[in-house]
Design a protein around this nucleic acid. Sequence first.
DNA 1: CCAAAAGTGTTAGGATTACACCCATGG
DNA 2: CCATGGGTGTAATCCTAACACTTTTGG
Lengths: 227, 227
Amino acid sequence: MTSAIRLAVDAVVFGYADQRLQLLLIRRNIPPFEGEWALPGGQVSYEESLEAAVERELKEETGIGINYLEQLYTFGQPGRDPRNRVVSVAYFALVNPHQFELAAATDAADAQWFPCEKLPALAFDHAQIVAYALKRLRAKLSYEPIGLNLLERDFLFSDLEKLYESILGWKIDRRNFRKKFLSFGILTETTVHHSGHKGRPGALFRFDVEKYLALKETGFLFDIRTI
Amino acid sequence: MTSAIRLAVDAVVFGYADQRLQLLLIRRNIPPFEGEWALPGGQVSYEESLEAAVERELKEETGIGINYLEQLYTFGQPGRDPRNRVVSVAYFALVNPHQFELAAATDAADAQWFPCEKLPALAFDHAQIVAYALKRLRAKLSYEPIGLNLLERDFLFSDLEKLYESILGWKIDRRNFRKKFLSFGILTETTVHHSGHKGRPGALFRFDVEKYLALKETGFLFDIRTI
DNA sequence: CCAAAAGTGTTAGGATTACACCCATGG
DNA sequence: CCATGGGTGTAATCCTAACACTTTTGG
């Protein structure tokens, strides 16, 4: 019998901080690619679900929890791991980085956020996985309100604008964007936010997940492609 | 050491015949679920890519080749196979059934097309996989011209209309549909089709893949959601 | 009082929808 | 000649896109 194919999971974890999209990476402390940066992940154990494996690895290697998780794609080309045949189910996760401390406390090697436009070289085929995830993120931003998982619970409308602008990579019209986004009725206005910076204080908004799910039931489709 | 997770592929193969969407199934001739219907598929061997495994299994079990193949989703819940932990990468395939004979010649058990609205009970979690694939097919029909992979090379416009109507499950406006679809410029009109049935003969069209790919390069997006 | 950010409406143009009659053939 | 399916245009409506000034605060 030839040896068995190994099954792993990898997580592409996006965060949003300093008005830039960030990616969570760990520095490998074992061969191959020792010392290089890679996606958090690892082998799936026999009794756990794939999602459980992702969450476990993330906890172990980086100490963070996640706001949004979905399966991305399964990468299985022979040769993607130089030693063995490893098939990896990649997951796509969104996090508000302010919500979690990166744990230096764990036994993992360094975990660190990198702005997406300045990524280091990555181990294995992880650059390809990240590219795929970015494509998915950009596409999904326009037809599901997942961007809200990258923000704090309460946020300024301008935060949301800037998030879309920085991830999609083009200028959006503030007036049209606000009109359209608010027309969905999935944001509730809370208090007004004072101080911090110069300029007129703005209203704080919060994503009303209940209302979003209720609307989805009725066939409503979030769609902000035409901004 | 606990035993290793097994890796398999399964294929959800859709065809279109008798003006209905059809699904390709095989009858299992080994336990578990012996005698029941299931998706074609099987274990991935150590050196082959996932796609190669799918195509090999399809050839072995049903004798058909495929017009379109993409990865669908990876199903990995513990317990989905009653004996072992099997993680299965499901693929989504489109075929023109007239193009291939189902091979009784192979050593596989029966392979057979079933209309999607009259599927038998399926082994494992295959009903769930099929449901997922149907969702993907319906969604994709509207923003990629994949429906054309289900038709013969030359087809009547009414075939295309009926395909969309039967898969999406609602009436479409003939005039608007034709106007919009032709406006993309990815179909070329060939000859006029005489005979076969009563009524005025219609023009035959052919999908111009070259032109479609060229257009895609330029940022053109196929989009027929608003029909 | 100045700089910075928040907030807000209107209009022209383009896209979508709804809709009905004539044409060409086979039987 | 009639039944069947193929082929076509227009008008009303809705949605999108473009655009600039006023308000409120901190410094």
